[in-house]
Design a protein around this nucleic acid. Sequence first.
RNA 1: GGGGCUGUAGCUCAGUCGGUUAGAGCGCGUCCCUGAUAAGGACGAGGUCGAUGGUUCGAUUCCAUUCAGCCCCA
Length: 1038
Amino acid sequence: MFQPVSPQLDLVALEETVLDRWRSDDVFARSLTLREGQPEWVFYEGPPTANGKPGVHHVWARLFKDIYPRFHTMRGKHVIRKGGWDCHGLPVEVQVEKELGFSGKPQIIEYGIAEFNARCRSSVQRHVEDWQALTSRIGMWLDTDGAYWTLSNEFVETVWWLFSEMWKNGDIYEGFKVVPYCGRCGTALSSHELAQPGAYQDVTEPSVYVRFPVIDRDFDLVVWTTTPWTLPANVAAAVGPEIEYVRVRDPLGGRDLVLGRDRAQAVLGDDIIIVGTINAADLGGLRYERPFDFVEIDATANIIIVADFVTVEDGSGIVHLAPAFGEIDREVCEPYGLPVLNPVDENAHFTDVLPTQYRGRFVKDTDADLISALEQSQRIVRVQQYTHSYPHCWRCDRPLIYWAKPTWFARTSEHRDDLLRENETINWFPGHIKHGRFGNWLEGNVDWALSRDRFWGSPIPIWRCNDCGHDECIASVAALSERAGRELTDLDLHRPYVDEIRIPCSQCSGTARRVEPVLDAWFDSGSMPAAQLHYPFENVEQFNSHFPADFICEAIDQTRGWFYSLLAVNTLVFGKTPYRNVVCLAHIVDQDGKKMSKTKGNIIDPWSILNTRGAEALRWYMFSSGSPWTPKRVFEDAIDETSNRFLRTLWNTYSFFVTYAALDGFTPSNHAEPSTHVLDQWIRSRTHRTLDTVTGALESFDALAGAQALDTLIDDLSNWYVRRSRPRFWKASDRAAHQTMHECLTLIATMLAPFCPFISDEIDKNLNNDGISVHLRDWPAVDQTAINDALESEMAIARQLTTLGRSARANAKIGVRQPLRKAIALLARDVVLRDEVQREIEIELNVKAIEAVENLDGLLSYRIVPNFKVLGPKLGKLLPEVKAALAEVDGADVRATHSQGKAFALRIGDQDFEFGPDDLEVRAEQHGELALVQDGGYAVALDLELNDELRAEGFARELVRHINDKRKHLDYAISDRITLRLEVGEAAVAPATLHLEYITTEVLATSAIVVPITNETIEGETSTMVAGHQIHAVIALA
RNA sequence: GGGGCUGUAGCUCAGUCGGUUAGAGCGCGUCCCUGAUAAGGACGAGGUCGAUGGUUCGAUUCCAUUCAGCCCCA
């Protein structure tokens, strides 16, 4: 017996009940043990950074990380879902710095690295709790108890091992490179950190055109820079080999100015006087006086170099080179043996090499002072505000500088071909990422800057000898213990504790200590396939059977983040991709398509939706509304709309079923023969076809297609099957109907389970009360014998015909309670509707008969249109002519010819054509009269002529409705029996009496009489008009 | 400057391996139903599928250019 169900759907309450049940029955764990020994379907959790509360965009990714594992579990796979938390890195440090009110590394060191890192650790733990709560509430099944934490010693030890493997292969080196550098955070940023949203911002700042007086010549170069602060580090100027340079009179009477011809007017104005031209080659090798003499430099520097990269797109066509502050500068200067002048410290402040007014200041803040110094020395040609996109620190938002600093690298660029090869084997969803955003990124791969001069991270496991400088890479705690000569099993593998471990140098008598930096946190997350299992120190078998992943899923910003670090670490170490399928979601935006941000105040807190609408509403919205590859607008009205439409319709339908199944005492049978009723056959066909579609969709990571198929099915079920079948439930107690609907609802709940795990579990539990959660069921097999193409297409036609019929009734202003003698339906050629289908149309349209005809000559005309798909390839260029000729043909002739099984012959121009039935389409056209409506090949005409019999029947139906309405007002129960006395006007006595038996049955009367109406009224009741007759229905409980 | 995505009804979005009649929901208008009822449903209006050019018998769909928005890179 089914539990009664409220027609009102309270998702939040329902979800809490289901969550409790999952908890007490341990359903998630059981869904795993159930599949033990079955094939693995491997999922990797991309660890969220635990440095803040999760937002609605995180929910999106988490839901997609949930649906496919749920689906594959039901498909019989063993899908372990180990959670993970990304614990290290600058975001966490910045968070803690904020809490402590710090603004840089010196304060941290003063505070103590041990204490600082302890705070980082507890900050992570705090936020992980938020994440766990949300993960559970949205119905995401993830093993958070067994989650990997990148801060754990085991995890770090594997990271060391992976790093050491690269080291062994020669893929790790320490280089000197110009990197985007944040002085505040005291660290370089990797290129994928630069890829974080908000890193590039448009800024307007002064750019300067500076005079570089050429030595032993009588002219000055005009050199352009957008970073005046780099001028003290200038060592060279570059000119382009193909660029023509001109010599221009200085309007202020100084020495002549030299710059690119194409830029002369833009820089100096239209009135310039050009007094000569100079080749780049003639400039090359000349020396000049540099703008500032603060930094010592040998006499061979400050030369003009000819270099290809110089352009005349902007600037002056002459480029200032400061190798310490530009990667191109460094590359160009290196072959000339030019020095790297670096008067900037690790805080991005000028060092003491500069005069007092500059030293100790953030370099970018000295631009104005440097410019005025140049003005005083009459070196400025022009200052111009310049707007360009400039990189900022993605966490502290301060402008970065390009700065030469020692950095550890992984030689990813040497493995570019491997990375590209492996990428070819990955299925990207959407597909364009593969060769687009991600493929392009791999093509342009540069070595991965791995080191961070910070505190809270996996320490780089390299020990360097103080004396000889020899580096040794440590691959494990055991190795470190052995080299240090003491047991270090309990050592916290973080700074400052690892820093204190010294080992003897293997090459000399010196002592080695760990190099200072920690690893990029992306290296941690990229290490997770092995590190989550502490491979190779443990779980070797398990790792082997869980690599690579079948499925990972993150938002698109991870192309250069986790998607890359995973591929890079694992390709370099294991030689192959760690994932086969990757679902790549777009971003969440607000109602207006704007990015959500705290400053705009348009953030949606997931909890506010979960607490008011429920997780299921959010889930269904995320899956069913719009493609996951396009930015998704999230706002409450949209969620309500979607969930009302689908979830509430489903619930209503379910509640309807349970209500009548309970009334009828229906219990489902496992051995019931499929019903032969046409509606039952039809909805079974629809359901199994949908199952087929949903299965295929989820197999190919297309949740949207699956959701749409389910959406259509629910509409079919509610608006056609239930609508048409209602009397079979409440009047006929039709077992076959109950059985069919039970089967369909069960199938729907089952295939909905991965999408909406709460409501589906609840429905399934009530429908099949066998103590087994829907999530422990096998994904159902499609019953191919249930799928009936012919029936589905007939029913589709039937529904189209009823639409036309309703439209015709509406046009004629005839209500549907009034029966009509017949409807004439024009069907497309070859369409035959079986009697039962026809009968459904008759009842729905309330007509006594449907007359299917092949022509409605006289009522409408036909237009003959080529079947373009067939005739196009056959006729080619002749088609437009044929189309025109066919438009002139009498459609009735064509129909007649074809119905005789002959081809329709036509002479067009001087050519003879024959058109078979497949070559042409016959379209009904024009309204012949009021009650006829046509659409394409179909038309319905209603016979509007009424006789007394039809009128009487219509009247009876009106009476039934009136009486039932009254029952409801009196709050009678559906099954209450009544006595009925009908007082009706003189003219209505006969019609009412004629159908009294029908009326009696319909209103559940035990007795009924018809009497002429009197003027008396019964207390509280008055007579009313029904179908033009005055009536007074007196009812009472029997 | 380069790469990628998006542009379809007032709004949110599907769809079209090229076929001449482009769909849904919401909203709007007009109604219906009253045994799913503090529910449900129908019908209707509304679109030159961002623009231009090309390929084709035929383009919203393919190609090129272009405009706008978003994302990424430099």
